[in-house]
Design a protein around this nucleic acid. Structure first.
Lengths: 238, 238
DNA sequence: TTATTACTTTAGACGAGTCTAAAAGTGGAT
DNA sequence: ATCCACTTTTAGACTCGTCTAAAGTAATAA
């Protein structure tokens, strides 16, 4: 019913909205989807007519409940696929994103169910991002903050890592920094360069751009409901 | 590079060509893809410009080597997916077709490799259709003929079953007639109704439309290179 | 041979999604 | 309070894949 293209717009708006809150600007969407702003304006018109977003001219867009549900469905497909690819087809966590992007619009409800069942209803994907539940209930807000907002001396656990940039992910995989890793912050240099000590005692210096993509919680926070260690874990339906 | 739509046309032309030989008529393609003949004529023009088919006006189309390679690639994706869904996600052989149709255009080469590896390079899909090899070498001709061409007294083994109609497949699955099943033909009535005896001694009467979709070989033929029993088997690269 | 019938192609239109160029609006700095 | 720089929207065009309606071709039966 909804085209792949529209689903992509809704997913993108959801993700920007989750990070920076509404309203979501035309240019932010354009950048994320690699389209011109004019194209985005045009599509926002369509999405508004369909009742999937609301919009204030020259200000930006916000998902309606219906638009959010579509976005959550797409996100559920994406993250289930990532989890499945990593768990059952030996993909590394840095490789799964593109494949999931290509497939997320094309799987049936039946496929979704079977994949979820095969993995025992995982709660998070390999990047640590939460997988929306089958009923597409809104996701809880997240108490993790970027590593770049923490201070020297903090001990934190990696909650999730943005999966936007393949290179970054490979760099971090190399460095042993994945969801579930405990980090001690040993230095914060000018321009946001952060030096951390990993589980195994090694030290890594991370440029700010990367430190911004690593979301962490305090190490003493009970990790049980957002832990994303080596194994995906069962969903507790919020 | 090639759109999904073009891939679908090429796949369809390949399949009709494999059944009835070239040239493939506009209307046959139109029927198979549920498009108008005018639409097909238009797309055949595009495909010809791209060097994927040759064409004689008012006669029909034929794949070039390049067009055939594309078709084989799509077919490989489709059949690998069918095999994977059946083997690893508990789909029944009657359910896999639609899911594979939706996904076949969207999987990466990497995904193709990993799926093939996970299944140990299967030679046939759950319907008994051969899976093109990774090098996309042309498929051998097939010595199976439709059940409807056989006579009373013949003992045959089901080689493959056309996967065009979901209802038919469920009917046959119910009747225990799948690739690998041995059948004895006990009666052929007017209008092509065929009565067969299955492995387990039961008798089934099949209308001609279904008997045409069941491809069989003589039971004494060595089944080793086209057997399609419960397990998929390794490819021997032709 | 010609007429009928079935099939194919041409002609022209349309919707979706995109673009470029130009006009309009917004908001901060002077 | 005005202006400037930036963002957003509008206007209009283009491609792709599709359709309908009309015209052309082929094959067959009379």
């Amino acid at each position: 019913m909804l085209s792949d293209v529209m689903e992509d717009y809704l997913k993108t708006i959801y993700q920007i909205q989750a990070r920076s809150g509404p309203p979501v600007s035309t240019s932010a969407i354009a950048t994320a989807l690699d389209k011109t702003p004019a194209t985005v304006t045009s599509m926002l018109g369509t999405l508004e007519e369909r009742g999937l977003i609301t919009r204030e001219k020259y200000k930006g867009a916000e998902l309606t409940r219906e638009g959010e549900t579509v976005a959550l469905e797409v996100l559920r497909h994406h993250r289930l696929l990532e989890a499945y690819l990593a768990e059952r087809l030996d993909y590394s966590w840095s490789e799964v994103h593109e494949e999931a992007d290509a497939l997320e619009h094309h799987i049936s409800e039946e496929f979704e169910r079977r994949v979820a069942a095969a993995l025992d209803d995982p709660a998070v994907d390999p990047h640590g991002d939460p997988i929306p539940s089958a009923d597409l209930a809104p996701l809880e807000d997240d108490d993790a903050t970027p590593l770049s907002t923490r201070e020297v001396g903090d001990t934190v656990v990696v909650s999730r890592v943005s999966d936007r940039d393949r290179e970054e992910l490979e760099y971090l995989a190399e460095a042993g920094i994945t969801p579930g890793t405990t980090l001690g912050i040993v230095d914060v240099a000018p321009f946001g360069m952060v030096t951390v000590e990993t589980d195994d005692g090694g030290e890594q210096s991370l440029p700010e751009s990367i430190a911004e993509a690593i979301y962490v919680v305090d190490a003493d926070t009970d990790g049980t409901d957002r832990d994303a260690g080596s194994d995906v874990q069962e969903a507790g339906n919020a």
